[in-house]
Amino acid sequence: MTEPDIVPDHERAAIRAQLQAYLNAHAIGVPRLQQLMEQTLDAAERPYVNLRSLQRFMADSVRIEDSKVIRYRKFLKIVQSD
């Protein structure tokens, strides 16, 4: 099954909540989260993970591109399976 190209608002909120729980569980901030994402995701996906966008996504201050949110979701799937 392929991942949808459009991430609905309710799923964005769920991804944000899961990332926040990950931050809290590991006592890290968004800059460290961004580094972990870069280390975890494939090289082709790394350009989609930048600190500024991740900070904005976590703060829910602007709508981040779906392509970036898809990578955040992929990161969560990887770390949750460990």
Rank of each mutant, 00 (worst) to 15 (best):
D60V: 12
A27L: 05
G29P: 06
R73I: 03
V79Q: 01
T40Y: 05
P8K: 02
L41T: 00
L54E: 14
I78N: 05
M37Y: 01
Y22P: 02
M1D: 08
F57N: 06
L33D: 08
V62D: 13
E65K: 08
I28E: 07
Y22D: 03
G29W: 14
I70H: 00
L36E: 13
I64Q: 02
R12C: 15
M37L: 03
D5K: 11
Q18M: 03
P47D: 09
L51H: 10
P31Q: 04
P4T: 14
Q55Y: 01
S81A: 13
Q18I: 02
P47C: 10
E45D: 04
L76A: 02
A44H: 03
R16K: 10
K68C: 10
T2R: 13
D82N: 08
Q34R: 05
H26G: 12
Y72P: 00
Q35D: 15
V69I: 13
P47S: 09
R16Y: 08
S53T: 06
N50Q: 14
F57T: 02
E45G: 07
K77H: 07
Q39I: 04
E11M: 08
A44S: 12
Y72F: 08
V7E: 07
N24G: 15
P47I: 08
M37W: 00
A59D: 15
F57D: 10
V69M: 00
I6P: 05
A21I: 03
E45W: 06
Y22C: 00
I6C: 08
R73F: 07
Q80T: 03
S61W: 15
R52L: 09
A13F: 06
D60C: 09
V62G: 00
F75L: 03
L76Q: 02
E11T: 14
M58D: 11
D66C: 01
T2M: 15
V62I: 10
D66S: 09
F75A: 00
K77W: 09
I6F: 13
Q20M: 06
V62S: 00
N24M: 07
I28L: 07
D42K: 03
V62P: 01
D9Y: 11
F57A: 10
H26Q: 14
V49C: 07
Y22W: 12
L51Q: 14
A14G: 12
R73D: 09
A17K: 07
V62F: 04
R73Y: 11
A44Y: 01
P4V: 11
D82Q: 09
K74M: 12
K68F: 13
L51K: 07
L19E: 06
A21H: 08
D82V: 05
L54I: 00
I78V: 06
R16Q: 12
D66A: 12
E3Q: 04
K74F: 15
L36A: 01
P8Q: 11
R32W: 13
R52N: 12
E45C: 04
P4C: 05
E3F: 10
E3M: 03
K68L: 13
Q18L: 03
E65S: 08
L36M: 07
R56F: 06
N24K: 11
